[in-house]
């Protein structure tokens, strides 16, 4: 049996899978950089365990043996098992959130200043991977909002290319009304959700 170790950080939790010393497979749940911890379920045909506290680990000796009762893993063991993988875990992508003036294709002054910081960020991170994602609020039909988001994202790409970012590095897409910053009911106006996000990875 090959050994496996996983460390999982969820958006607010980190998952680590790791090969422990010997023939062991272990999963440990870690908090993210904010100190928040999510929760994961580790399961196979023999059983399933929920890990919901930071540094909780479960050991799985085989596909037909239930994962063990979650128990704390100390920092030394985490470092020993996952040190190399954790050392190269990249920083979170940077999100630049841009807003347009009402009923306009012009960015607000603040967003215009923010846009100028995208190029330095790509240089700083040696990024080859930039996304421009259009978002709307939930007023209007879903498809209409998808297209509206895409239109604005295309405009922002044009601005980024003008500012010197290579067009081939930029992926343009729209999440329409389906990935809000602030959750609302349908047909509710929410200016904070009408945005274009530039993501530098």
């Amino acid at each position: 049996m090959r050994s496996i170790s996983i460390a999982l950080f969820l958006a607010h939790a980190l998952l680590l899978l790791a090969s422990c010393a010997g023939e062991r497979n272990v999963v440990v749940l870690l908090p993210d950089s904010d100190g928040k911890t999510g929760s994961i379920v580790v399961s196979n045909q023999a059983g399933s365990r929920i890990l919901s506290e930071q540094k909780q680990a479960t050991i799985i000796s085989s596909p037909t043996t239930s994962p063990t009762t979650p128990a704390p893993m100390d920092d030394e063991a985490i470092r020993k098992n996952f040190g190399e993988a954790l050392a190269v875990l990249p920083p979170p992508p940077i999100h630049f959130i841009l807003y347009f003036k009402t009923d306009s294709t012009d960015l607000t002054d603040e967003s215009r200043r923010l846009l100028a910081k995208v190029l330095p960020a790509t240089v700083d991170r040696k990024s080859t991977d930039v996304s421009v994602v259009g978002h709307t609020d939930r007023v209007g039909a879903r498809e209409y909002n998808y297209n509206l988001g895409l239109e604005r994202a295309l405009l922002v790409r044009k601005m980024l290319v003008y500012l010197g970012i290579e067009q081939g590095l930029i992926e343009v897409t729209s999440h329409g009304e389906d990935n809000p910053l602030v959750k609302t009911a349908d047909e509710v106006q929410e200016p904070r959700n009408r945005r274009v996000e530039v993501v530098v990875r």
């Binding site: 958006a11 497979n25 196979n44 910053l181």
Partner: peptide, 23 residues
């Protein structure tokens, strides 16, 4: 997240996405 010995799923957790705005 699958492995040869077990699969890992995520349980719904209420959290907002982290937005890093250096500006």
């Amino acid at each position: 997240f699958e492995t040869p010995v077990a699969n890992i799923g995520i349980r719904g957790t209420a959290f907002a996405v982290k937005v890093d705005d250096p500006g």
